[in-house]
Simulated assay, not measured.
Amino acid sequence: MSDTTLTAEAFVLVVEPVTAPVLVEGGEDCVITLEQTETVVIGAGEQGPPGPQGIPGPAGGSSLQRQAGEVLSALRVLYELDGAVFALDYRDETHIDLLLGLSLTAADAGQPLNVQRSGVIEDAGWSWQPGRIWLGADGQLTQTPPVDGFDVLIGAAVSATRITLNIQDPIEQE
């Protein structure tokens, strides 16, 4: 096909089969039909239905997707065990070393859940004071450092609605 300028109007171009007389040895005339039908559809496309949600975030492992092991809310600190994630409590001695990151989405048990391990997170519902943020009860974030259980620094609030994740190793309180 030659180069053609197309407009936004849709059209269909059909090239019909070509017939050509052919002289065959022996002097008899024959007609041979070449089966080379070509159909080309050219036109403006429409948006299709959305596909499944992909793996979140930039390359490098700062964001990932896991399966919820229980009903989970967004913006909760999670741990991972056997491919599923659960809310982590600052007093959970059994799972404290399995800390994965912060949930970005909510999910029912068995559904995919987006998790962020580092970087900036914003939420209009937050009202932080600039300063440190720790792991609290049931995976919640708090600006009150724990006096028992484990001290797990999650990051810092840099504005009322923005935190920078910088998850540190847990320190057991005595």
Rank of each mutant, 00 (worst) to 15 (best):
E122A: 10
T105G: 03
P58Y: 04
S2K: 12
P21I: 05
A8T: 06
V115A: 01
V40L: 09
T4Y: 14
Q47R: 12
E80I: 14
Q65V: 15
P58K: 13
Q140A: 04
G43I: 08
P49T: 09
T94E: 04
R117K: 15
G57N: 04
G155N: 00
R117L: 08
A59S: 15
I171Y: 05
S159Y: 05
E174Y: 06
L34H: 03
E38P: 04
A157F: 12
R162E: 13
A107N: 04
S73M: 02
G101H: 04
P112K: 09
P52K: 12
G61W: 10
G51R: 02
L153P: 06
A74T: 13
F150N: 10
D151M: 07
D97N: 12
I96F: 02
T105S: 13
G57S: 05
T94H: 03
I42E: 00
A106M: 14
P56N: 13
S103P: 02
F86E: 05
I42N: 03
A87D: 05
G136V: 12
T33Q: 08
L98N: 14
D89K: 00
V120T: 15
L104V: 09
V18A: 11
I96D: 01
V18I: 08
L102G: 05
L23T: 01
A156D: 11
I133D: 01
L100F: 05
L81P: 00
P17K: 01
G69E: 07
L100K: 10
D151Q: 11
T33W: 02
S103V: 02
Y79N: 09
P21D: 07
S118I: 03
G125E: 11
A156H: 14
A87M: 04
N166L: 06
L153N: 13
E174C: 07
D82F: 10
D138V: 12
N166G: 12
D138C: 05
G43E: 06
E172H: 08
W128T: 00
L34D: 06
A8E: 03
A160S: 13
E46N: 12
G60D: 04
Q36I: 11
T142Y: 01
Q65D: 05
L102W: 06
L141Y: 13
L75I: 03
D138G: 06
P130N: 15
P17L: 04
V31F: 00
G139N: 11
V18C: 10
H95A: 11
V120Q: 13
E70Q: 15
L34E: 01
G125Y: 11
T144E: 03
V77W: 04
L75A: 03
G45N: 13
N114P: 01
L99M: 14
